[in-house]
Design a protein around this nucleic acid. Sequence first.
DNA 1: GCAAATAGTTAGCTTGCCTAAGTTAGGCTG
DNA 2: CAGCCTAACTTAGGCAAGCTAACTATTTGC
Lengths: 141, 141
Amino acid sequence: MTTDDTGPLADTLSRELRHLVMLLRRTTAGQPVTSQQYSVLGSLEGAPRRMTELAEEHGVQLPTMTVQINRLEDAGLVARGSDASDARVRTVELTGEGRSRLRAVRQARIAYLARQLETLTPEERSAISVALPALAKLGRA
Amino acid sequence: MTTDDTGPLADTLSRELRHLVMLLRRTTAGQPVTSQQYSVLGSLEGAPRRMTELAEEHGVQLPTMTVQINRLEDAGLVARGSDASDARVRTVELTGEGRSRLRAVRQARIAYLARQLETLTPEERSAISVALPALAKLGRA
DNA sequence: GCAAATAGTTAGCTTGCCTAAGTTAGGCTG
DNA sequence: CAGCCTAACTTAGGCAAGCTAACTATTTGC
């Protein structure tokens, strides 16, 4: 059953993903927000969100998200609010500072990855580009 | 300068990689070794290695590797040895237990990813397959 | 109106990473 | 060959990020 042709592909893919993970993690190293914080800020770009939503979206337990938001709040990047119709619910939204910090970090990350991508040939970039939808689907599964 | 055509690609790629990271991390969740431990065990498959080698290979500082190896040693999965020609050097190798644990975890991870891959169409799998060398190159950069 | 469910937070533990400081061994130089 | 510098590790201490269990405060449903 595992002697499919997907076996070797799965093996190689898992190895490569590990390397890329390391690459990306270091992209945020030394920056004013960590990789996770950046990713949470990204979820807040549109509208205020509830704690539960955030936790689910990031595949994390509620207490973990509480701590993350605490730190972001201490840093002045997000603000907690309350839901008008349900007093149990806390909402979280970006502050102005948070919004501009998000922009800056995103800029830096994209620039970094773009620089890396430029070391590839056009064919290689195109191959990645073509594979992206499939990788996306894999990530949602 | 960042208004290259690599910009959007970089942006999308970084998002997708985040999702895949989460996917893979949970693959090891609940298993007897963590994702990092698994990856260290993998480095030991061939021959005994030195601490410094391991740290470099995993992009980690030496003290971090010391702690990892301590835990693996406590768990009976690796054994420390000494280098005959240089008494400063500690070597690390798999125990029998470590070897079989490695096999089991690898099996599980590959089977998991392979199962995920089977939800894709042959075309999507092929796209990922084609992109792998480029992703690998990106990871080494 | 009280019990159960829901939303968050707090507390305490683990992993994983880091830097700084120590220890021991090897190597070079005067 | 003595003394010093470097190299290989380990130890100690600190922080981020994750988890579960236990607590508080609401809401809902019988």
